[in-house]
Simulated scan of single mutants.
Amino acid sequence: MSPFKSSTGIYENLAGFLCYLFAFVGGVIFLVVERRSRFVLFHALQSIMLFGTLMIGHALIGFLPLIGTIVGLLLTLIGLVLWLVLMVACLQGKWLKLPLFGELAERQLHRM
């Protein structure tokens, strides 16, 4: 466990884990309630951006016959792998920054 607690009273690594466990919704909740921890805010932003993009991608791909099903399965597999990897990284207290979403989350974090 991380020795640092977020402003919610939850350990930072556990709060970051919850941002991903509940995917988009967990990120939104922690973005609203967290006041101090940059670690938690970063992971909340990255969760919102990643899983929001995956949800939009699934919605758009659903309109394509046949190939939409294949691409949808691929998106699901990618989302599942990223979900697991990001949750484990947070529990370990790592700032795992994804190539596109991590950069955007970091930029947004600096503006806050």
Rank of each mutant, 00 (worst) to 15 (best):
N13E: 04
L54P: 01
N13W: 11
L73S: 12
G79C: 10
M87A: 09
F30H: 09
G68C: 08
K97T: 11
G62H: 08
S7E: 06
Y20C: 07
L41M: 15
F30A: 09
T8Q: 06
L73H: 06
L64N: 06
I70C: 01
V81R: 07
L74D: 11
Q108A: 07
E106D: 12
A59V: 14
K94D: 10
P99S: 03
L109P: 00
A105N: 00
L86F: 04
P3I: 11
G68Q: 01
V32Q: 11
F63Y: 14
F4I: 12
I78F: 11
M49C: 10
I56L: 13
M87D: 07
G93N: 01
G16L: 03
V32A: 12
Q92E: 11
F39S: 05
G26L: 05
F101A: 10
I78K: 00
V81D: 07
R36K: 14
I67E: 08
G93Y: 02
P99A: 09
C90P: 04
T69K: 12
G16V: 10
V40C: 09
F30W: 10
F22Q: 04
L31C: 07
G79P: 02
L14G: 00
T69P: 08
E34V: 03
L84V: 15
W83R: 00
P3T: 11
L50S: 08
W83A: 00
S47G: 09
I10L: 14
P99R: 03
F101T: 13
R107W: 02
G62F: 07
I61T: 15
E34W: 09
V85Y: 05
E103R: 15
Y11E: 13
L91K: 02
Y11F: 11
N13G: 07
T69F: 15
H110D: 11
P3H: 06
Q46A: 01
G102F: 05
V32P: 02
G62A: 08
